[in-house]
Design a binder for these strands. Sequence first.
DNA 1: CTGTTAGCGCATTCAA
DNA 2: TTGAATGCGCTAACAG
Lengths: 331, 331
Amino acid sequence: MPQHRVKITEVAREAGVSLSTVSRVMNGNPTVDPTLAERVREVAARLGYTANPLARSLVLGRTQTVSVVVPDLANPTFQAVLRGVSHAAAQDGYHVLVSDTEEQVGAERDIAVTTRRRTDGVILCAPRLAQHELSELLPAIAPAVVINRPAQPGIPTVAADYAAALGELIAHLRGLGHRRLAYLSGRVASASGDARRHAIAQATAHDRTLEIVEIPAGVDFDSGAAATDAVLGSDATGVLAFNDLVAMGLLSQLSARGIRVPEQLSVAGFDDIPFAAFTTPPLTTAAVPAAQLGRQAWAAMRALLADAEPTASEILTPALVVRESTGPVSV
Amino acid sequence: MPQHRVKITEVAREAGVSLSTVSRVMNGNPTVDPTLAERVREVAARLGYTANPLARSLVLGRTQTVSVVVPDLANPTFQAVLRGVSHAAAQDGYHVLVSDTEEQVGAERDIAVTTRRRTDGVILCAPRLAQHELSELLPAIAPAVVINRPAQPGIPTVAADYAAALGELIAHLRGLGHRRLAYLSGRVASASGDARRHAIAQATAHDRTLEIVEIPAGVDFDSGAAATDAVLGSDATGVLAFNDLVAMGLLSQLSARGIRVPEQLSVAGFDDIPFAAFTTPPLTTAAVPAAQLGRQAWAAMRALLADAEPTASEILTPALVVRESTGPVSV
DNA sequence: CTGTTAGCGCATTCAA
DNA sequence: TTGAATGCGCTAACAG
């Protein structure tokens, strides 16, 4: 089936007009005689004509496509961001080109630049890219919207306030009487990781009776499970996991060892991924509105594409979700 | 920042050659004097020149991009398929354009056709599209690869054998002494749903002492929860949920009502989504290798793109994963 | 209001 | 081996 696509010249010939008239009609240009326009439309419909988007893109300089680059498509948070962008962009008739950098920080720059050339802008999730690299990357891929990390003036950012949310989580645990907490950190530096650390520093500075020991872990289920010994050896009565995945890994090991949560140990996650409500026990966490982040990122991008004038950056504060994995400290 | 891209003519002028020579060099055409080639490469590098992919696409007729259309980006199975395609395609230097039809079966055709025009082919997940619609759609979007449903001769299909897997699940439950099972079906017709029903018919025909009652549910967590009353009223001792999400919804309601699993009721899911191992109790299920489905779909697409000759269809059989949500029937 | 012309940026004939 | 033309399919000036 040789995909024989009808092109604008055929429509023009068949309708007995010039190709520019067809072009005008197809683009809703009102300066065309209604009778003629109708005839052209009829012919176009009969021939099943639709303008070749590639040719349009080339001449118009826009592709009706955004690039979304994420570090890991297996991560529920990025999946939700992608979904948010996808739905919102689709509503505006835009397409989405996804790229998963597969946690190769070194590839982020190239992927962003490469995909930018076939799209009208890029929505970037690059939590681990060094700030100075980000700074020199952004001008090269403008218009860009950055998710979950501070960018620079003029570049719209859509982010969740990780520090505030972790602060709430800590306050929650303090309220339950916990005085010694373990923080399971991500292994490598990331923007949200910095924010979390900041919140921790602030909390301990504010309350000298509070101790928070940092245990290097990672960002996935296995890291959480692997950190179990360290957690148990830390004498902490409560745990702040880097995210829900880590918390779940920990939970599963805890359960395997017969340690009851929250009676013997309180565990809090972060993100509120779809399954956080269904762990055993259901996980207390901070609900990062990832899909909404995606939607807002698109909104910012749309604004850039239209006005070319930067929108204000959006900061969403994750809601504290208290479930059953946290409880009063036991004496 | 006006994104002033350097174009091929500038490189040509700067290098003192014609633009065709630059084009040849950039495309590795060996019929160019090595010295000249080197000079061109040097200039291109210095100017940071890279060919405009849109212009190339227009003239070459290929975009180095595949379209992946899925019915729901929130569904872990499709997320995994997307991930599989994305990783595999990236390895071959291809980009991925995702579209989420958001379960609007009516939109699938348009989306597939539209995205096809800006890509080199489409990998289609459209489980609920009527077979005859699929048949007339496929020629219009060729080359296409269909996931998880029979297509037609010449169109490569990559699918999991849902019937065989459900058969194994049923056999597992029979082996545990269950004689009356409830099947929580998806609400609307789908290819994998048909396969499941087929497996059920076969199982009950094969063993007259086995009864399987169908309870219309849905495909998500809430549907599972909502089906609890019907399940309990069915006198079944074991439940085959349409998928893990449904099983989890049921599990959560069962737990809320104090019904013990598997002591009082066995529950099996389907898909083995990432969190199936972490429900309470861990879910017995059939592991649909979704990411692998995605990888194979890409492999088939790559073959189409290269040879233009259809590859054989791939059928993967999901592995039975016995965990703790199923157990011996209680008397 | 309509048609003719000139590119968009590149790959590729065809000559030289 | 290289360069000059042609066209991929379309939109937008520019005339008429």
